[in-house]
Design a protein around this nucleic acid. Sequence first.
RNA 1: GCGGGCGUGAUGGAAUGGUAGACAUAUCAGACUUAAAAUCUGAAGGGGCGUGUCCCCGUGUGGGUUCGAGUCCCACCGCCCGCACCA
Length: 850
Amino acid sequence: MSDYSPANIEPKWQKSWDDAETFRATATADKPKYYVLEMFPYPSGRIHMGHVRNYTMGDVIARYKMSTGHNVLHPMGWDAFGMPAENAAMASGGHPKEWTYSNIATMKDQMKPLGLSIDWTREFATCDPEYYGQQQALFLDMLGQGLVYRKNAMVNWDPVDMTVLANEQVIDGKGWRSGADVEKRELTQWFFNISSMGEELLEALDGLDNWPAKVRLMQENWIGKSRGLEMTFPMSTPAHGMDGITVYTTRPDTLVGASFIGLAANHPLTVALAADNAELAAFCEDCKKMDTTEAAMEKAEKKGFDTGLTVENPLGGDPLPIWVANFVLMDYGTGAIFACPAHDQRDLDFARKYGLPVIDTFFAMDDDTPVADEAFVPAKTEKVRWINQPAGLTEATGEEAIEATIDWAEAKGLGTGKVQFRLRDWGLSRQRYWGCPIPVVHCDTCGVVPEKKENLPVRLPDDVSFDIPGNPLDRHPTWRDTPCPACGKAAKRETDTMDTFVDSSWYFARFTSPHADTPTDAAEAKYWMNVDQYIGGIEHAILHLLYSRFFARAMNDTGHLPKSAREPFDALFTQGMVTHAIYQTPNENGRPTYHFPEDVDLRDGKAFLKNGGAEVQVVPSAKMSKSKNNVVDPINIIEAYGADTARWFVLSDSPPERDVEWTASGAEAAFKHLGRVWRMAHNIGDAQDNPAEDTALMKAMHKAIFEVTQGVESFGFNASIAKLYGYAATVSKSKAGANAKRTAMLTMAQLMAPMTPHLAEDIWTHLGGEGLVVNAPWPIADEAMMVEDEVTLPIQINGKRRGELTVAKDMPKEDLEKLVLAQDAVVKALNGGTPKKLIVVPGRIVNVVV
RNA sequence: GCGGGCGUGAUGGAAUGGUAGACAUAUCAGACUUAAAAUCUGAAGGGGCGUGUCCCCGUGUGGGUUCGAGUCCCACCGCCCGCACCA
């Protein structure tokens, strides 16, 4: 008899699915829909194990939903714009377009053998003119609604990539991609007005019950809503046309403790003063550098510059000096603060350094110690005793004092309560070639004019070169030239392209009608949206997901999505990485030399080099990385064991949200198990029916159906697989007749089908299952078959297990208690006495308290 | 610094407040074999001697709640992640 051969099986069943167009998503009224989406990949050129795990999880859900009577939409596409393509063009002289499309072709070839249930007819790349043309249409509609605007802004300039970066693309003062120190530059930029939706984006987080709490919290912190008081301190002597300093504070309750005013280095007053004060100008230059590169290293160092000016204190008392302080930021609040050193560590550090007063405004309930070197900052919910509180409070929590003081200040006309967000508008302009052109024209007469929709897409020119840094669109001989859409005179195109995060902010909506000649088709979008289950990496917790939430709202506002899709992802799952041990030996410099897994022998829990036998240090569970030689290529695994083994293994060993470590022995074991199941299906035998054994097997089958289903429903794929191992062992050992075994194995095929679809089809057909297993309805566990007549109860004495008792499930409590008290262990423990207490948890446990 | 999460065998991990360690890896033993591979069966948290349906200890540490705690509460230790001069 032949043996389990994935190389024969897998292409065969893939062809059957293709021929039957099994995965074609069609909107029909007779079935509920289910939209499952995995975050689409960047076409780097090769798929990796992380992709395999991500897509397999989505595939399990998609196939399961198909078999439970849903129209399933499970699409795939390519996040295809971005700098690596340009970098490759610079390095090797090719064209970003060719590089990208060739990578897409390669990766698709690598993905196809996985047997994913993807509707490839909906595939697109974001660099397809058909896609980015609709993105331009969307941009114009958003422009019309005031959701996009232009402003001068200090931007983060990456000197290596020669482009602007969003705040969130700057990590520790360095470009997220290039790692270069980021500089500040002032440019006219396009911005999405995401902050106008801050409140809604924050409030709607509450409704996202099927998102990880962690992601919701990260977004909440990112949006950063706070309530405080905006008030103006009148200047003692007006200067540079200004007669007051407006500050924002979340702690107006500590106004009594104000000791100085702090201005940002780029506050308008600072800038005006620096114009004729070289020393201050030099100080401000220092601050600008700190903002980017040195911030991380010298975070504790507070520096300031005394302007010599003062403001009047609205509470009476001495005027407050105005300082320029390096820790005050222009782009939050008003760029000016009042400092209360007693209750803010930064202010205190500053005050101590420059000898400014420290005024306690409240004390703990049981402690009068004045603040020394540590600011007193209790939780806002803690009750404290106030000194000269402006609103007249004596004992109150911070929360109460803040609200009371805002009311007081408003009544006195000193200021107004204000809500502030950390979330800032999203700068989308990029000075790059390989991105979606911003569809506007600059006209000397008309200014900035939107391109007409009938002229879309504004296509990228193909004849560009990358031999000099900077944007090839800027230096293209003719591309910029175009008539002004308003007056028809000669004008110039915008040469900035869009941040690639724009491309991925609405692709999920485009998948509902990928070839419509508007961004979406209303009927299709209404049927398929929302995404029922979105799956991807935690690294997208803030940027991609927040931007997508914004875009879904913007698309609703511009009529491209229904209101119900303003929150586009009903459920989000963030999966863990696939890791692999690193094998390293120290070289002569003491630095590690990395060895490929295939060069290492594993014996007795240790690792040795095959060549030379030297012992190798093993670093477990490290992220796969080419530079560490610990990457496992899915293609090699598929060739060696087949796709089903790869799929089974990446799901098996760890819960989906955690990292899973790829081990050669684990993959081997997965392959062996699939072979075992295959042989079981081919060795049913011809045993006669055996009622007792048959019933026992059918009971086990229904239990397996129940448990595996539960695992799939709850994203516990590893649990489902553990149950399938157990079920396989039960079937294998069963003495049931051939009919019952055949039934048991047909169910096995169905239960395994979402994880190992090719093997499942093969078994299903071999055992005479009707049609394709992918189309078979999911088995339903029969509750009656899962009822056990007898239960084994553990008997505890004082909470410790001391024996067990097998009794009829429905035995009356009194009879059970009698039996328990007659147990040897219980009799011994009671030693002739009576139990203090007898706890019977029906069907679970008995505890005797002695 | 702020916020969040996690600590269970050699390893990955399982366990609605109810038999801790399912399932898998690695390990060991047995069967089959001339032998090996493959396959199948079984053992296995640690310790004890009295070898048993035995006893003691055991889920980072210390307390607490409970008839009963890996699970709930408090404090501490360690690790991981996110944010970070946001007034």
